[in-house]
Amino acid sequence: MKIFYAVQATGNGHIARAKELIPYLQRYGQVDVFLSGNNSNLKVDLPVKYQSKGLSLFYGNKGGLDYWKMAQELSLFNIIKEARELPVDRYDLVVNDFESITSIACKIKRVPSIGFGHQASFKSKLTPRPISKDRIGEYVLNMYAPASKYIGLHFEQYDNFIYSPIIKEQILAANPTNQGHISVYLSHYSDEVVASYLNQVPSQRFHLFSSFHLFSKKEKTVNQRGNIIYMPIDNALFTQSMINATGVITGAGFETPAEALYLNKKLLCVPIKGQYEQLCNAAALQNFGVPIVSTLKADFTKQIENWLNVTTQKKLEIEWSTASIVEKLMEEAASLQEQKEIIDPFELNHLSLKFR
């Protein structure tokens, strides 16, 4: 079997998940990766055969999205051109982890695909949302990368096609300890902004991971200043820090909160401003007893102190192993092969005609 696996490289979660998933997919055949996006901080150690700048999200340094940079990077003409050239029709199975070019390519070439990953879980109306829904956010979650079928991942099994988070083997095999520090990863804020608050809790030690390094954006070593140890972005380093931490402060993404809850670490989340998916995750995390901080402001230091003193949270239980999730994925793939007709998930005729 030849498997085409589209990986969204916006942020680190999709790549981290792909690293865990690919060895299981390779049990069923050859896996070729299409990497789309250019702003992940993780080292990409994947069988990448195709690559694109894609449609990437970029963040400022004060908690929100950088819409100007996102607009500068967007080229609709190139996206359609790349979609036409992407050889999805040469593969037995297309697995799409929220990647739009692959979705367009499958539409144009009438190739069925399976939408896989966290975003796929939002195809269910039962998946938690914030009290105030965002129509544009809902549209993006539903129409950014439509597929023929879906395998969703979330904190709990809200629907029959939603399964457990894929947790790294290093986390699954860990013996968590409490060495007294807090692991902090807030990539949507600069180190200077985050440190200005952490310095106000001098009795607490912090490990601060960020792509905006206080000393140098090219800094590759560990540096300490006061009660903060500044760490370069490194998957293994962050994982080890989290395993031995008292708690974790991070955005309201998916992979890192899932790992923290699985390790039964205290968790505090600061969602990225303007990113609807993180607001949805925040709604789900509140059901675990996780405090949500909308933005860093004057009382953030007090919120940290309260969280350290009184927070109790529910541990994340893993009901589906990675191997069993891949088995379900292959069952869906087999059912796609049996179908004689595939219903188009969305209409792009006007785009395909325009760029002929």
Results as ranks from 00 to 15, higher is better:
183 S>E: 06
221 T>D: 01
56 S>G: 11
115 G>H: 11
303 Q>K: 13
84 R>V: 01
4 F>H: 04
232 P>K: 06
204 Q>I: 03
139 Y>V: 03
163 Y>S: 08
300 F>M: 12
277 E>H: 10
155 F>N: 04
90 R>G: 06
210 S>G: 12
38 N>D: 14
64 G>V: 04
170 Q>G: 08
44 V>I: 15
280 C>N: 08
287 N>E: 06
290 V>Q: 12
356 R>H: 12
324 S>E: 12
322 T>P: 08
48 V>R: 08
89 D>P: 08
143 M>S: 13
336 L>S: 05
299 D>A: 13
344 D>N: 11
239 T>G: 03
319 E>F: 13
267 L>I: 06
178 N>H: 09
242 M>E: 00
304 I>R: 00
175 N>D: 05
215 F>V: 07
87 P>R: 12
238 F>R: 09
177 T>E: 15
226 G>E: 05
243 I>E: 11
293 V>N: 03
182 I>L: 11
181 H>K: 14
288 F>P: 11
318 I>T: 11
203 S>K: 12
11 G>P: 04
353 L>T: 13
178 N>M: 06
336 L>D: 03
282 A>Q: 03
185 Y>R: 01
31 V>H: 09
167 I>Y: 00
129 R>P: 00
100 S>I: 11
295 T>A: 14
84 R>N: 09
3 I>P: 01
106 C>K: 08
35 L>C: 15
70 M>T: 12
249 I>S: 07
187 S>G: 06
239 T>I: 13
239 T>V: 10
278 Q>R: 02
14 H>L: 11
345 P>R: 10
192 E>V: 01
316 L>W: 00
200 Q>G: 00
314 K>G: 02
2 K>T: 14
32 D>P: 05
257 P>I: 11
291 P>N: 03
14 H>P: 02
92 D>E: 14
184 V>C: 09
271 P>H: 03
12 N>P: 09
216 S>N: 15
170 Q>F: 01
7 V>Y: 10
60 G>I: 02
263 L>F: 02
133 K>V: 09
248 V>C: 09
139 Y>P: 00
208 L>T: 05
91 Y>A: 12
153 L>R: 01
270 V>M: 02
43 K>L: 13
273 K>Q: 09
111 V>E: 04
166 I>E: 00
192 E>H: 13
237 L>M: 11
328 K>M: 04
69 K>Q: 14
37 G>S: 07
59 Y>T: 09
201 V>Q: 01
77 F>I: 11
10 T>S: 14
144 Y>C: 01
38 N>C: 13
